[in-house]
């Protein structure tokens, strides 16, 4: 469990009035309309929302794969908007681990080589790289599948390779974009189990999902509607059992309280502000 990081000055994620629009003029689409979001170190956050709500766009911005149209994004206190391409590549490599719905493994490449890849780009030498990659694969329970190419692995195994690849550089932030969207229930349980263990180990995790049982694992659930965060629920992190009722706070004046299925108690008055900064210690 993470304790209150009082000594830590900057949150892992600090998103300020971020907007993102595609296209120009009348045809432009506003995917994000001014998102405010702060995520502290060690938090396990689920972002929910229907398709088109902008959650994937938000994830891409958080993962430094895309740049916001306006607003600021501070990652570990670092203003990402001011970084050039090379520095962004470094940030993606060192500070962020990304897991995709479609696994996004490189074809015809062994599991070990996939996991070694971020380390190669980080300039880690052969022996050390191999050791760390094997450790990461061991962590996801695939120590016996190191020589298998993606087409020789099941979906769940592929996603676990992707997880190992995201973790191998020990990033501050693990972003998962519907990681269980293409998996059966057994593989889903495996992947979520790994995420739970990572959370226990103090890793910051942000996961996008539309499945309530996946979101139920997180200690904080954000709901996105039309490019705005409309709800921010916090609850004591209880897993693998029926979670107790949590508090739910409507975000902003415009957003109604959206019921959060697995958490029950919709619309209950919350004890915590939406920014989440103050809430860390209350989980104890």
């Amino acid at each position: 469990m993470t304790g209150p990081d009082a000594g830590r000055p900057a949150p892992v994620i600090d998103v300020r009035a971020v907007t993102k629009s595609y296209g120009h003029g009348a045809a432009s689409v506003h995917a994000l309309r001014g998102v405010e979001l702060t995520i502290e170190s060690g938090e396990y956050v689920a972002i929910m929302g229907s398709s088109g709500s902008g959650k994937s766009t938000l994830m891409n911005v958080l993962g430094c794969l895309d740049v916001p149209t306006s607003g600021r994004y501070l990652l570990d206190g670092l203003d990402v908007g001011r970084l050039d391409e090379h520095q962004l590549a470094l940030v993606r490599n060192r500070r962020i681990g990304f897991v995709f719905q479609s696994f996004n493994l490189i074809p015809r490449t062994s599991a070990l080589a996939q996991v070694e890849l971020p380390l190669s780009y980080a300039g880690v030498r052969g022996k050390e790289r191999r050791r760390r990659a094997l450790a990461a694969l061991d962590l996801v329970g695939l120590a016996d599948r190191t020589d298998h190419a993606p087409n020789e692995l099941s979906g769940g195994q592929q996603q676990r390779v992707a997880l190992a690849r995201a973790l191998v550089t020990a990033p501050a932030l693990l972003l998962a974009d519907e990681p269980t969207g293409n998996l059966d229930s057994h593989s889903t349980a495996e992947v979520l189990g790994i995420l739970d263990r990572l959370h226990d180990a103090g890793r910051t995790i942000v996961i996008i999902t539309h499945e309530d049982e996946v979101a139920a694992r997180a200690e904080r659930v954000l709901r996105l509607v039309d490019g705005l965060v409309v709800a921010d629920h916090r609850r004591p992190p209880v897993r693998a059992s029926v979670p107790p009722p949590t508090t739910s706070v409507p975000v902003g004046a415009s957003g109604p309280a959206v019921p959060f299925g697995a958490c029950g108690a919709p619309g209950a008055p919350g004890a915590f502000g939406h920014s989440g900064n103050a809430g860390e210690g209350a989980h104890r």
Binding site: L65, H86, R92, N93, N104, L105, I106, Y121, A166
Partner: peptide, 14 residues
């Protein structure tokens, strides 16, 4: 192209 995207996502510099 997709593979290039993956590589960039995991931090491949230009």
């Amino acid at each position: 192209t997709r593979e290039i995207g993956i590589r960039k996502a995991i931090g491949a510099p230009r």
